[in-house]
Design a protein around this nucleic acid. Structure first.
Lengths: 339, 339
DNA sequence: GTGAAAGCGCTAACAC
DNA sequence: GTGTTAGCGCTTTCAC
């Protein structure tokens, strides 16, 4: 259907192998035949079939990425970071959504593997049923886990300091005088969410403040989950004076719940979110967040993957990136208090 | 390296061809050998190599998508819509960013084509140099253009009623008493942006209001461009009383410029944006926007692509989706005025 | 229904 | 430096 190397070889008057060498840039070809082949290729509009090349060479120059939801700005940035990082080496990203569902994730991994991706980057929704990931890794393809830590696994991971970041945010709230702080968690089965809850607890412990279990509410992956959870917190008889939301969509939901009740931020309820988001510094009031180096997560995963593809056989890497507390105005911190 | 059909065939005690038929679900296989093959495959953990299959069958079950910027929520939703639509038929999305640059776009198209995608969906940054797209289409692979109309081309397109939508938004502003309305355009070379400007003009014309050319400012693809452009408008000696922003990132930028100047919306400056965005209805004040059916754009493109892949040889389709004016509070419209 | 054999477009030995 | 010859893992005739 399309032109093949053989067509170009014929047009250039050389053998198929020589044409392949000239086109592929490997082996040795005389300047003369090189030119002839390249000219013929250009003239006829030849397009290389990477598939055929991959079938024999064993590399598709394609990396698979599985995210929970591409519409989540966090993942969008991860995609961007990964794409930018691997693109410079000629790789392209095959994308799949899991909708935070382990079964769909396994399907996605399968779909990507069957397309022979060189490696896989996945923000897994799994906690224990890692079989689809271990078998993928066992097949010899590097698998890099992002965002959600996997302490006892042999996978390379790129994560952020969830516990430390969360603890810092909650400590900030406590420092501002809050002692009843509600937390809207993500799905607690997701390790990053669990770690953020750990940070919440640690900050309380270190400040010598007890935790009212009723102030810990389980959200979920979507904005609506966050809205519901934050709403439940705000509707308590003795509501918290501050909210800590465990993900950007949870923050969206909390914002929505707060607005729906006509509450003023930070006077009536303070708010800190984990993960920065577009407009966070533009809306009124600007929202204080624990900012994650989102692009960098994707970039580091891409770089690590590239290293693995380059033959790095070292022990599992656990890259942990730092978060930054971006103090804006949603907690009532005065300019002077911003360290 | 990985298991092949031949391995399974051997394990099942049948020929490679029979195993392939059982595994591929084509041709005719007896119930007995079928079972044997499938069992062996499951037991050994066989994974089909789609590449090899694609090489002979001619379909990779992969569609290419080129967007300007995956971090733009508009494109993120398009990706989601497309992925969901094609996934049900077993296709996967190969994603590439163009950064709104025609050269990078051409590279992206090349990268996707060489990976033998079955079809291409692209939000092209091109206006006249369509060669990379026409040659792609000429190669027999369906190419669907989204978001940006291409009136004189032979491509299938999925767009929205840009002019109508923009005109409606501006008419809304005029109806509220505004006569000095600034517009922050996207790159005017992009057809959708040009159409939105046309809508802006038409609304003025139909209302019998003259346009001050100084009120038309060119933005760009990013938030920063919008901020700069909106800022220029606001800093005019005789600034507009209302702003119409031509894209969501332009709206972000305008919001930022407005906040930086401490202006109140809508009292000191009204605002309508083209394209809805997360939090638009949650921030204060909620922002009036021309909402596009974003998921549907991707979905329709996916469905159309699937139809083309299914053999539909009909004339170029031009699907134009409707926008909706979401009246919120950023223009000062009273509840009563909301039709 | 099943097997043998050819071939998709390419890379990679291996001779010359 | 260049051509010949094998495959990569699969689908697809074509006999049987």
């Amino acid at each position: 259907m399309s032109l093949t190397i053989t067509d170009i070889a014929a047009a250039a008057g050389v053998s198929q192998a020589t044409a392949a060498r000239a086109l592929g840039g490997y082996g040795s070809v005389s300047e003369k035949s090189r030119e002839q082949v390249l000219t013929a290729a250009r003239r006829l509009g030849y397009h290389r079939n990477e598939l055929a090349a991959a079938l024999v060479a064993g590399s598709t120059h394609t990396v698979g990425l599985v995210v929970g939801d591409i519409e989540n700005p966090f993942f969008a940035s991860v995609v961007r970071g990964l794409a930018d990082a691997v693109e410079v080496e000629g790789h392209t990203v095959l994308l799949a959504n899991s909708d935070e569902d382990v079964v769909r994730e396994a399907h996605a991994v399968d779909a990507l593997r069957s397309r022979q991706v060189d490696g896989l980057v996945v923000a897994t929704a799994a906690t224990d049923e890692l079989e689809h990931l271990t078998t993928a890794a066992a097949s010899g393809r590097p698998v890099i886990l992002i965002d959600r830590p996997m302490p006892d696994s042999a996978f390379d991971t790129v994560t952020v300091g969830n516990e430390r970041g969360a603890a810092g945010a909650v400590a900030h709230l406590i420092g501002l005088g809050h002692s009843r702080i509600g937390i809207v968690t993500d799905d607690p089965a997701i390790a990053s969410s669990a770690e953020r809850l750990l940070g919440y607890r640690r900050a309380h412990r270190e400040a010598g403040i007890g935790i009212d279990p009723g102030l810990i509410v389980e959200g979920g992956p979507g904005q609506e989950d966050g809205r519901r959870a934050a709403g439940a917190l705000l509707d308590l008889d003795d509501p918290p004076t501050a909210l800590f939301t465990s993900s950007n969509l949870a923050t969206y939901g909390a914002l929505s719940a707060i607005r729906a009740r006509g509450l003023r931020i930070p006077e009536q309820v303070a708010l800190v979110g984990f993960d920065d988001f577009p407009l966070a510094d533009v809306i009124l009031p600007p929202i204080t967040v624990v900012s994650q180096p989102v692009d960098e997560i994707g970039r580091e995963a891409g770089l690590l993957l590239l290293r693995r593809l380059g033959g790095d056989e070292g022990p599992p890497q656990r890259i942990e990136l730092e978060t930054t507390l971006m103090i804006r105005s949603s907690c009532g911190a005065k300019e002077a208090e911003r360290a």
